[in-house]
Design a protein around this nucleic acid. Structure first.
Length: 567
RNA sequence: GCGCCUGUAGCUCAGCUGGAUAGAGCAACGGACUUCUAAUCCGUAGGCCAGAGGUUCGAAUCCUCUCAGGCGCGCCA
């Protein structure tokens, strides 16, 4: 279903083209073909409901001042009851002033579609994978992972609403050096806890969680591993702790409202031979060479700054090699577009990853990498690196516990991915007007309150399914106050916002939109009473606020933020 | 040194594929609750869009250079 705005824009475009054709026939404007032009909503209300920029675009070719072109077009545009006025203004904009009821239909659409309102069509069958978080399973998730989780999940939701077939995936880095170090660290703690001298190796993990794992294991299984050879017991420790950590990550993420469709193991790529296979593929194509005992990929031939090691001199494949296999695997699974969300510290990896895909014959443009700048956590006005209670880095679970899922997810999606995000703990915790998440939720709760109040007064809530389009139109035409019309127009923006957010991979737009919508509603609320003595007006306004509530809910739902009925 | 990101109001940031007088929140100041939740609203003030060139009908937006901050440039991931 086409949304109201798209329909209107198309209609105005057709009118302009018809008028322009006429002007060309009249020999007033001389051009070869009609260029692509915009119909947009002017920033300033004084400039009408919609504006077209076509006159400026034609100025050069037609060798006429834009305003003259605009006038030639404007005077040929057929006006009707829907179009009240057409004017040429500014540098040559053609401004359209429409009947104030032009967007009313959106209320009808919202109430008919419910949670489906905003869904775009036309992308059916296009498969997109969003891979995000992919935190190291060697310990708890940190703030960066939390931002990634909020961002990735909201992005996936936006893409789904935009009509794509979306899969959310978590890549478990359960192989390689870090896992080795993880094992060595576990072993060291185990020995230490049993009174043996031992030290955590360089690059090892010093966190309390390592000790806790081993403490727990000792309680369950005692000291029997003292008598096992070192590699075997490390393998056991790794399997044991990894399983716990992964389970913990799943739980923490679920508590954060983030659910993954697929958990993909890096180790499985090694076990199944896919890593070896992809290295062989690159070698067969002549894109590798040996140097210093290692096998290198000629990444510099594919746009990267330098070549990269695939197999180390010690015979073990690098993370990069596994990642190539992983991305090949993604495309072989049939995804049309693969999106990775990485922390800013990984941006150096982009060129070589795309280079590898190119070398393998895949289109590197089908891999979109969203680089997310790092999070700075503030507490009491200063940068907080450590959790006060636990004396360790602040984790995702800490954030959920301290500030709550709703505030955290809202905050992380408040800014675009490429800004360095300042997360102010005090502000996020604060249940006050300084906290933007409550502002939006409050709008939703307020509407619930009105609806409750209506029922108490014996007013029946209107049911869109029991209204004919005619009856609806009659009611909606009663909405003539400035603040009512503003709210209606804001609702009409939602489908377009979904599209923009999806096209730009920018879910934070929805957060911003939700704030604007809430503001428009609050403003309306202060100017217009919903429950009045006028029965028809009351019904009309109920329809309006019910629609507003639905859209607020839809927007918050994308962000993973709840829409409370009371606050 | 090279690459990526950032530089817009006192602070945090929007500004979409270039468009009309650069916006919002917070902070500041002044107003609005006997009426559906004042977690709200209305108003005031606050800007050489880091700087300099260029592209054009038109630049915060695109290009080049300079300056400032962050990150990266491993046989780590």
């Amino acid at each position: 279903m086409k949304d109201v705005k798209t329909k209107v824009e198309q209609r105005l475009k057709d009118l302009i083209i018809a008028a322009l054709d006429e002007a060309i026939n009249d020999n007033v404007i001389k051009i070869e073909e009609i260029p692509d032009f915009f119909i947009e909503v002017p920033q300033d209300k004084e400039h009408g409901d919609f504006a077209a920029n076509i006159a400026m675009l034609l100025a050069r070719e037609a060798k006429m001042p834009p305003r003259k072109i605009g006038e030639a077009i404007a005077e040929r545009i057929k006006k009707d009851a829907f179009i009240e006025k057409v004017e040429v203004a500014g540098p040559g904009f053609i401004n359209f002033y429409l009947a104030p009821t032009w967007a009313n239909e959106v209320i009808f659409d919202v109430l008919k579609c419910g949670q489906e309102f905003g869904r775009q069509s036309g992308q059916k069958g296009i498969k997109i994978q969003v891979e995000f978080v992919s935190a190291n399973p060697t310990g708890p998730m940190h703030m960066g992972n939390a931002r990634g989780a909020a961002l990735g999940d909201a992005l996936a939701s936006v893409l789904k609403l935009a009509g794509y077939d979306v899969t959310k995936e978590f890549y478990i880095n359960d192989a390689g050096n870090q896992i080795e170090n993880f094992g060595l660290s576990l072993e060291a703690r185990y020995l230490e806890l049993l009174g043996h001298e031992s030290e955590i190796p360089e690059g090892g993990y010093h966190g309390e969680d390592i000790k806790e794992h081993m403490q727990e294991l000792i309680e369950k299984e005692g000291d029997r591993f003292l008598y096992m050879d070192s590699p075997s017991r490390r393998a056991y420790f790794i399997e044991y702790a990894l399983k716990k950590n992964i389970q913990r990550m799943k739980t923490d993420l679920e508590n954060f409202g983030v659910h993954f469709d697929v958990w993909f193991s890096e180790q499985s790529l090694h076990d199944s031979g896919q890593v070896d296979e992809v290295i062989k593929l690159l070698t067969d194509k002549g894109y590798t060479y040996e140097k210093d005992g290692a096998l290198w990929f000629k990444a510099s031939e594919f746009g990267a700054a330098k070549d990269e090691v695939l197999i180390r001199a010690n015979g073990l494949p690098t993370y990069f090699a596994a990642d190539i296999a992983y991305h090949k695997n993604k495309f072989d699974r049939g995804f049309d577009l693969v999106i990775d969300i990485w922390g800013a510290d990984h941006h150096g990896h982009i060129a070589r990853m795309k280079g590898a895909l190119k070398a393998l014959g895949y289109d590197p443009d089908k891999l979109v990498i969203i680089i997310m700048q790092l999070v700075r956590l503030y507490r009491n006005g200063e940068i907080a690196r450590m959790s006060k209670r636990a004396g360790r880095a602040v984790t995702l679970a800490d954030i959920v516990e301290e500030v709550g899922k709703d505030a955290a997810r809202f905050f992380f999606n408040l800014r675009s991915a490429d800004t360095h995000l300042d997360f102010d703990l005090d502000l996020a915790i604060k249940q006050s007007d300084e906290n933007p998440v409550y502002y939006v939720q409050y709008a939703h709760a307020r509407i619930s309150s009105i609806l409750r109040q209506a029922k108490e007064q014996g007013v029946d809530l209107p049911d869109i399914d029991n209204l004919t389009k005619d009856e609806f139109d009659k009611l909606a035409n009663l909405l003539v106050e400035e603040s009512e019309l503003e709210l209606i127009k804001k609702l009409a923006d939602f489908p377009g916002e979904i599209k923009l957010a999806a096209d730009n991979f920018a879910p934070y737009r929805i957060t911003v939109y939700s704030q604007e919508l809430a503001a428009t509603f609050h403003s309306f609320y202060n100017k217009c009473r919903v429950l009045t003595d006028d029965q028809n007006l009351t019904t009309a306004r109920l329809l309006l606020v019910m629609a507003a509530q639905q859209v607020i809910k839809n927007a918050l739902s994308i962000l993973g933020v709840s829409a409370p009925d009371r606050m």
